[in-house]
């Protein structure tokens, strides 16, 4: 896969994703309603201006064209609810979320994959049962609840957000890796290796893991998108100033410029992570 084609795909998805989000928000019933209208102190002119502002938002193509040309010049507009340039807001908050996601994905993979290998190595043992039960339990906890429990019983600030996202990722990584390992273990070439008397560690690293490396790498890309989903409630509950919390604030105040920019950023992160995992796949696994 050429780099140019991958970049083109990222660009297409991000641009179309931004447009789709704008269209969905603007045409959602209730978008034209504004909480500020409830303020009895508002003058008729201000109300009129607000209405005109909302009516302008419905000119989708024109608005989006202006947004894209602004983006090309590095201008991202101003947040209506926070009254600050979107660029400044993103500069403040994006690194917080990106760093947390990077740490969470690493931690989630360390926990999930290690647990999968341990459970795979000891089938039918209490360790396997414990691994399956604990990951099933984690799968049943919404990220917001995990954040709340960490807020109450754990270290509320600092690394709590990283742990919430990592614990949300762990059961998914575990389940997928564990099933892949079991499937790969049943392949004829593994049976042959066992029949030849190879050691279990050699069988695991030379015969079981290599055939599933491609699927595992693909899951790394997907983990970033899953992590972003879990980061939103985690940042809201734990009051972490990242883009998840910003998205929540923008959604509550129907801040269109901020929401479109955030959609752009989130789609960019997700598609770039997937493209990177595709690239890694092509480089490491021949024929993929």
């Amino acid at each position: 896969m050429s780099v140019l084609r991958a970049l083109g795909r990222i660009l297409l998805v991000v641009v179309a994703g931004g447009f789709l989000a704008q269209a969905l928000i603007v045409f959602a019933p209730g978008y034209s309603a504004d909480e500020r209208e409830l303020d009895p102190g508002l003058s008729a002119e201000t109300r009129q201006t607000m209405l005109q502002e909302k009516a302008k938002d419905r000119q989708l193509l024109g608005n989006y064209g202006r947004f894209l040309s602004g983006l090309a010049r590095g201008e991202l507009g101003t947040s209506r609810s926070l009254g600050r340039p979107v660029k400044e807001l993103l500069e403040d908050r994006l690194p917080v979320t990106l760093l947390a996601i990077a740490k969470s994905v690493t931690l989630g993979w360390c926990l999930g994959f290690t647990l999968a290998v341990i459970c795979f190595a000891y089938p039918g043992s209490p360790i396997e049962t414990l691994g399956l039960v604990s990951t099933n339990l984690l799968l049943c906890l919404p990220a917001a609840l995990m954040a709340l429990l960490l807020l109450i019983w754990g270290d509320a600030r600092g690394s709590a957000g990283v742990w919430v996202v990592a614990l949300a990722l762990t059961p998914r990584i575990f389940r997928y890796s564990y099933n892949l390992l079991r499937q790969s273990h049943e392949s004829p070439h593994v049976l042959l290796a066992m029949a030849k008397g190879l050691g279990p560690i050699r069988i695991l690293f030379h015969h079981v893991i290599p055939p599933i490396a491609g699927q595992l790498i693909a899951l790394v890309g997907l983990s970033v998108s899953l992590g972003l989903s879990a980061a939103i409630p985690a940042e809201v509950v734990l009051d972490i100033p990242g883009i998840g919390q910003l998205a929540w604030q923008a959604a509550l105040s129907r801040d269109l410029p901020l929401l479109v920019n955030l959609t752009f950023v989130v789609a960019l992160i997700g598609t770039t992570a997937n493209a990177l995992s595709d690239y890694l796949l092509a480089e490491t696994v021949p024929g993929q």
């Binding site: 969905l24 899953l226 989903s229 939103i232 959604a251 959609t263």
Partner: peptide
Amino acid sequence: SLPWLFLILTIR
């Protein structure tokens, strides 16, 4: 391409 919860949050 958009995270599930982000999409729901935006539309909701």
